[in-house]
């Protein structure tokens, strides 16, 4: 478990050492146990999925990773050290970016501005410089705009750059949200049900973008998803949760063969 060599994926990509490790995580809300003693790791360069039926605790787990919830017990290790208690924005500043299940874009802004917000952890100009639009503030605006434009090109949303986000259809909003997270150039990208509510074509597009992101930038991706088929095709390793417990962990093939998983999830027709 604790090796640093990594492994080789089925399609021949080299996966690196452990980037993030969840150690014996338990999360309670009052008397309700949402997550019970779960451990797993996320390795550099891999696509790691967390799946499970509704109410399994997937979203809570993602919220722990991004610092929104504090685990009742257990530790989160990040880049080889235990992560101290920190606010969500501090977690984001350490290179963890995410998307949201129910799109959380800034509706009052254009696509371009939304994606630019992904860069704000990289911008440090002071109040005065910004007020005068001079010196560091102006240089940063231009330099970060270049990064953002690359992401916009990559996700093929050039033509809606200056459109207010509120006017976009659902599928495009999901893509803009991915763009915002990517613009942060994260070490770990968290995707909260990236395919939720999409039609087949949109799902295919999104899958392609996820694979491309991983391929082109080598970004480590952890995603939670309800849609089994897509996940099995996309991910390198899968954690399966049910009722707050981990019931399976391994490559998609291993997980598919796991009897607990079949009982809990795959065996159920839906």
């Amino acid at each position: 478990m604790k090796d640093t060599q990594g492994y080789l994926t089925a399609d021949g990509r080299q996966i690196g050492g452990v980037l993030m490790e969840m150690r014996n995580i338990t999360l309670r809300f009052g008397g309700v146990v949402a997550i019970e003693d779960i451990s797993f790791d996320i390795r550099e360069g891999e696509i790691r999925a967390i799946i499970g039926p509704n109410g399994a605790g997937k979203s809570s787990m993602l919220n722990i990773i991004s610092g929104f919830y504090t685990p009742s017990n257990g530790e989160v290790w990040y880049k080889g050290a235990p992560r101290p208690l920190m606010k969500p924005y501090e977690v984001a500043r350490m290179g963890v970016a995410r998307t949201f299940q129910n799109i959380a874009l800034f509706e009052g802004m254009t696509v371009l501005d939304n994606v630019m917000t992904g860069r704000l952890t990289h911008m440090h100009a002071g109040l005065l410089s910004q007020a005068l639009w001079w010196g560091r503030a102006r240089d940063e605006e231009i330099a970060n705009r270049e990064v953002v434009e690359k992401v916009i090109d990559f996700l093929e949303i050039q033509n809606i750059r200056k459109t207010p986000v509120g006017r976009l259809p659902y599928g495009l909003k999901k893509r803009v949200e991915l763009a915002r997270a990517l613009a942060a150039e994260p070490s770990l990208l968290l995707l909260d049900e990236p395919m939720a509510g999409m039609n087949v074509e949109e799902k295919e597009d999104m899958s392609r973008f996820i694979l491309d992101v991983n391929d082109e930038f080598g970004t480590t991706i952890a995603l939670i998803e309800h849609d089994m088929g897509v996940v099995m095709d996309l991910s390198d390793r899968v954690v399966v949760m049910d009722y707050g417990k981990k019931i399976g962990d391994g490559t998609p093939d291993e997980v598919r063969g796991n009897q607990d998983v079949i009982d809990a999830y795959l065996g159920v027709a839906h």
Partner: peptide
């Protein structure tokens, strides 16, 4: 105008539109 169209302006607008998401993308609310 400069403040509202720059980084600080985007930070404010993000806080206004969805404060939880703003915090999760790295804004110190």
């Amino acid at each position: 105008i400069n403040l509202t169209r720059g980084n600080l302006g985007r930070t404010w607008k993000a806080t206004r539109d969805v404060d939880i998401a703003a915090e999760l993308i790295g804004i110190n609310l």
